[in-house]
């Protein structure tokens, strides 16, 4: 038993007292570690849960998995042979995309022509899924820091941030510009070679993360904070939606579109695909860095 003074002190300091708050704060006593079998058994008995239900769950899960995998394996065994040109998957859709792709879209990468021209609203949906996922993560993890918390975080950062980590800083100084340039190259050549907005954006996001790791939070915030993230992402998504709406509207009504196709194979060609790739790349880079920063310190 603890004295009245101790109880008051613990209440003021916010530390849980073992006597009074055992029921309310019981969840705080759980620690994250792999429990041994006896511990599990005792906790099960204490909680009054039946072991049978869990065993039944395991058995049903295994049976379900076996049945589903068996059905799938049986289906795979009767699929048409691998790599055969006359498979039913290689039908007139493929013919259309490959034979008319260059005339329709101007991109010599047929996949880029397909995802950013024929099915461009699908890719807009993808970018929107990424944006909504980032928004959901922001809702779940974003914490506006009060001034006291900020001070504590600053002190903590000063402790952990090693200003003289020569290898990390010099390595980052060499690597970050080249990674950024490579990401931009992949985005700009999305309609000419393998790559495009998603892969290039991920590379640029990796460069941003490396910069943040090497040079700390404050130098990153000079050019990338929450406001910049919001503005850039929303402008990119809106530009994508509006330009593609224009393109589909003119195409469906047989109106002459003002967007030039260019000579296939040139960097400035293939109509809207290049700007759309840039938009997607910006959204992906911002979102990747945003995920990292939210999981790391709950802010952008």
């Amino acid at each position: 038993m603890s004295s009245f003074k101790e109880v008051i002190n613990s209440f003021v300091e916010g530390t849980p007292n073992t006597d009074t708050v055992i029921n309310v704060k019981e969840k705080r006593t759980y620690k994250h570690h792999e429990k041994s079998l006896t511990e599990r058994l005792t906790s099960m008995i204490e909680k009054g849960e039946s072991k049978g239900a869990r065993n039944a769950y395991t058995v049903i899960a295994v049976i379900m998995a076996i049945v589903i995998i068996g059905c799938l394996i049986y289906t795979v065994s009767s699929l048409p042979p691998f790599g055969n040109p006359s498979n039913p998957a290689n039908n007139e859709v493929v013919r259309k995309y490959i034979m008319d792709g260059i005339a329709d879209t101007g991109a010599i990468n047929f996949v880029a022509g397909m995802i950013l021209d024929y099915r461009a609203f699908d890719t807009l949906g993808e970018s929107t899924v990424l944006f909504i996922a980032a928004s959901a993560v922001i809702i779940l993890l974003f914490r506006k820091k009060t001034s006291a918390e900020e001070k504590a975080a600053d002190i903590e950062e000063k402790i952990y941030e090693d200003k003289h980590d020569v290898i990390l800083r010099h390595g980052a100084l060499i690597l970050v510009p080249f990674t950024l340039i490579f990401g931009i190259y992949v985005i700009l050549n999305g309609h000419l070679s393998p790559g495009g907005g998603f892969s290039g954006g991920t590379i640029m996001g990796a460069a941003l993360i490396l910069y943040n790791l090497a040079f700390g939070d404050k130098s990153t915030k000079k050019f990338f904070n929450f406001k910049v993230y919001k503005v850039i992402t929303i402008i990119a998504l809106s530009f994508y939606a509006i330009s593609k709406t224009y393109s589909f509207y003119t195409g469906a009504n047989h109106i002459h579109s003002i967007i030039p196709k260019g000579i296939p194979g040139n960097l400035l060609s293939s109509g809207l695909i290049l700007p759309l790739n840039i938009c997607v790349g910006i959204v992906v880079a911002c979102t990747m860095f945003g995920f990292y920063s939210l999981f790391d310190r709950e802010e952008i």
Binding site: N84, N87, I108, S193, P194
Partner: peptide
């Protein structure tokens, strides 16, 4: 499809 290339001209 066996023997063919990636779909880039």
């Amino acid at each position: 499809i066996s023997g063919r290339m990636a779909p880039i001209l």
